[in-house]
Structures are given as C-alpha cells and as structure tokens.
Simulated scan of single mutants.
Amino acid sequence: MRLTLYTDYALRVLIHLALHEDRLCSISEVSRAYDASHNHLMKVVNKLAHDGFVETVRGRSGGMRLARPAEQITVGDVVRHTEDGFSLADCSGCVLSPACGLSGVLAQGVAAMLKVFDGYTIADLLADKTTMRRLIARQSPLGIGTV
C-alpha cells in the first residue's frame, strides 16, 4: 500500500507547523520548503483546517498554525482523514471470494498498519528539530523557516 501525495503533503504541513509552533506559517513558505505545488497545498490546508488539525488566520500578517498541540495529533488520525479508503484489493468480483481468506488477511494488515500509525503523534516525528529546521532553511531560496 502506498499513501497518496495528498496525505504526504498533509503530514509535511503538520510537521512544518509543529517545527515552527512559535509563529504563523504561510502556504507559500511550506510550498517553497518542500518544493510542493502551492495550489495543491491550498487544498490540503483547507481540508486540514476543516478537519480541525490547522487553524488559519486571515489578513496581511495571517497564516496558519496547528489547531491543537502536536502531541495530540496522531499520524493515524491524519491518514484516516486524508485517505479515501483502505481496501488493498477488490475481492468483490472474484469467484473465490466466498471461500477465500485473502480479504480477511488484508483487513487485518490494514488494521495493524493503522494501529502503528495511531501510536505516533506529529510531535514524535520531530526527532531533531534543530537539524530539521536547518534542512528546511537550506531548501528554501529565501531562507524562510529559519529560527
């Protein structure tokens, strides 16, 4: 199974905001830091705000920040909100499905994966904040994201 780019961007946005919890961040800043599509990030941030992960502030000096502490946002919760489904295979049309155990095994696999994701928060992903901030600053042509 592979997570979508949408989920990847959602996690990157949340990590970025957690790294810069002392200030508001802009979508343009995140876009430059991760070389990600600004338009795609706008959609991601809108969904994250709608789902209560991100708080947005309008206006000239506006931006976004985490809506709650990074320690309270699990990777599993983000994945559940950003992925459409978790079906690894479509067994519905298979002639063997009434007697086959594959769908049950796949369902157990997905449940195990989500259980692992539920065991980690966004804060857990920030192993070395100083190095992470430095790497973001190097990527950004304007040095945005430095502390």
Rank of each mutant, 00 (worst) to 15 (best):
M1I: 03
M1N: 00
R2Y: 01
R2K: 14
R2E: 01
L3D: 01
L3V: 06
T4S: 15
L5V: 12
Y6A: 04
D8C: 03
Y9P: 06
Y9N: 14
L11H: 13
R12G: 08
L14R: 03
I15V: 13
H16R: 10
H16V: 02
L17G: 01
L19P: 04
L19G: 00
E21A: 14
C25R: 00
C25K: 01
S26N: 06
I27C: 14
I27W: 04
E29A: 00
S31Q: 12
S31I: 04
S31T: 10
Y34Q: 05
D35M: 05
D35K: 09
S37A: 06
H38E: 08
H40T: 07
M42E: 02
M42N: 08
V44Q: 11
V44Y: 04
V45M: 09
V45N: 08
V45Y: 09
N46A: 13
L48A: 11
A49D: 15
D51R: 12
D51C: 07
G52T: 06
T56I: 13
T56V: 14
V57P: 01
V57F: 15
G59C: 06
G59E: 07
G62L: 03
R65P: 10
L66D: 06
A67H: 12
A67P: 11
A67C: 02
R68Y: 05
R68A: 00
E71N: 08
E71R: 14
Q72M: 10
V75G: 00
V75F: 14
G76A: 13
D77T: 15
V79P: 11
V79E: 11
R80N: 05
R80Q: 13
H81L: 03
T82D: 04
T82S: 10
E83R: 01
E83P: 00
E83W: 00
D84F: 07
F86A: 05
S87P: 01
S87T: 13
L88I: 03
L88H: 02
D90Q: 06
G93D: 06
V95R: 13
P98C: 08
G101W: 06
S103L: 02
S103E: 15
V105E: 14
A107N: 11
Q108A: 14
Q108E: 15
G109E: 07
A112I: 05
A112D: 14
A112H: 11
K115T: 13
K115C: 09
V116T: 15
F117M: 11
F117R: 00
D118R: 01
D118P: 07
I122N: 10
D124T: 12
D124G: 11
D124S: 10
L126V: 07
A127T: 14
D128F: 08
T130K: 14
T131F: 00
M132Q: 15
R134K: 13
L135G: 03
I136A: 01
I136C: 02
A137M: 06
A137S: 09
R138M: 12
R138T: 06
R138A: 11
Q139H: 12
Q139I: 00
Q139L: 09
Q139G: 11
P141K: 05
G143K: 12
I144A: 01
G145S: 00
G145K: 03
G145C: 04
T146V: 07
T146A: 10
T146R: 11
T146C: 05
V147E: 02
V147N: 00
